Computed example of a mutant assay.
Amino acid sequence: MEFRFKNSECNGGELVKIFNKDFETTSLSEEEYSDCRAGINCTIKETHVNNAFVFFQDYNNEKSSEGHTLQVIQNHPVFLLQFVIDGEVTFTSSGTVNKDFSLNKNTYNLFYIPASKYSYKYHNHQKRVLNLYFTESFLADKMDFGFIKDLKKYEQAKKKNQFYAFFNKGLVLNRQLKSILNEFLNCSFNGRTKQSYLESKLTELVLIALTSKDSEITANKLRKEEREALIKIENYIQTHLKEELSIEKLSVLAGFNTSKFKSLFKEVYGMPVFRYITSLRIEKAIRLISNHDYTITQASYEVGYKNPQHFTVAFKKKLGYLPSELINKGLYALLWLCG
């Protein structure tokens, strides 16, 4: 299989990638580079593990709000699971039937792409997008095709060599998927351990992403401004964990009444607002204790608990053991590897 990437913001011209059938490989291959025009901060990471190829793009054009285009030519049909972490992407096919698919920040979709030429148009000055490529045999090995709403339409598209989007307007990129993406992109292992870890994370990512039925229903129901308001609030929560976060305050910031805010938040993120906040606080506290040598008291204050005892109670209720055991028994790695 051959892929040709041509990026309008890079200096290196066309990038050609050659793969064995079904992306088969016995070893882990990684490459990271930054070769963009002046004024553009960019990082491109490529990861090739057995049966999958990941192409991650992180761009920030400080001098212009205009977007750019990535053109791709491939000579073999593949699946693309695309996650838009930041920015907005329009996916345009060029063939017998021209069709555009757009994804906004914090959304994702699964595409079937025949052997063809197509392009990604990035509309914002800042964008973070992860493209995961694999073939049908990868899906068949990991799961059945029960997630496909209309198998007949997919089979017709495949027969006619046409693009096909499995989810009409894309799905919501929830906290669980963001966590998996972050763990994949920031893996600290080496050698064979790293290869096994990345392969397992990609499997987890595909399974969770394609079985999130509730996210599809919610994404299709939400208006663009509602989705953007929830994304704004999620970002606010993550950056203000040390502060007091009330339903009333967050509802006002979102522009909803409290009832609508609580309902939409639970539908999109799969849990009530306060449970979500508690989860984020505990996760951050774990990182502070395990990676930065914070005491339990210091960490509890840093994530918004005025009384360390209240933090200990919440921690024990959620995880089933005391925060002191992170230090005494080295449970941090176990917690994160098991999700």
Rank of each mutant, 00 (worst) to 15 (best):
S64D: 02
H310Q: 11
K316I: 14
C338W: 14
F83M: 09
T218I: 10
S196I: 09
E234W: 02
F101M: 00
N291Y: 01
S212C: 05
L181P: 06
Y112K: 12
E226M: 01
E267N: 15
I296N: 00
L110F: 03
D22F: 08
G304W: 02
E46K: 04
S27I: 15
S324M: 13
T193F: 10
V303K: 06
I44C: 03
I277N: 01
Y197N: 15
N174Y: 10
Q82K: 11
F55P: 09
I148L: 08
T90K: 07
C36D: 04
E14D: 00
I85T: 14
V252W: 00
S212Q: 09
G95A: 15
Y305A: 02
T203C: 13
S65E: 10
F265L: 04
D144F: 03
I231F: 03
K63T: 07
F261Q: 01
Y154G: 02
R223H: 11
A314R: 05
N291A: 09
H310C: 14
Q126R: 14
Y276R: 06
N257P: 08
H125M: 12
N20V: 04
A219W: 04
N328C: 12
L334E: 06
L139H: 13
Y59V: 06
T90V: 03
T69L: 04
R192I: 15
D144Q: 01
G87K: 01
L205F: 10
K142R: 10
E267F: 10
A254L: 00
M143S: 09
I286Y: 00
A38T: 07
K249G: 13
L103T: 02
R37N: 00
A299Y: 01
Y236M: 05
Q82S: 09
S102V: 06
L210A: 12
A209H: 04
Y164T: 00
K262S: 14
I231G: 06
Y305T: 12
N98H: 15
I180T: 02
K117I: 03
C187R: 07
A209Y: 01
K249Q: 14
D214A: 15
A285M: 04
L80H: 02
N235C: 01
Q162C: 12
K158I: 08
R287M: 03
T312V: 13
G330W: 04
K318E: 14
I289G: 11
F189V: 04
S246R: 03
A285T: 06
K121E: 02
E216G: 10
E66N: 02
G270V: 11
L253E: 00
L80V: 11
Q176N: 12
H48M: 07
V49I: 13
R227L: 12
Q156K: 09
L198F: 07
K105F: 05
E155G: 07
I289L: 12
N7I: 04
P272M: 05
F311Y: 07
F19Q: 12
D150Y: 12
V313C: 04
K221N: 15
F145C: 10
N50M: 09
V89T: 14
Y294D: 01
E225S: 11
N307D: 13
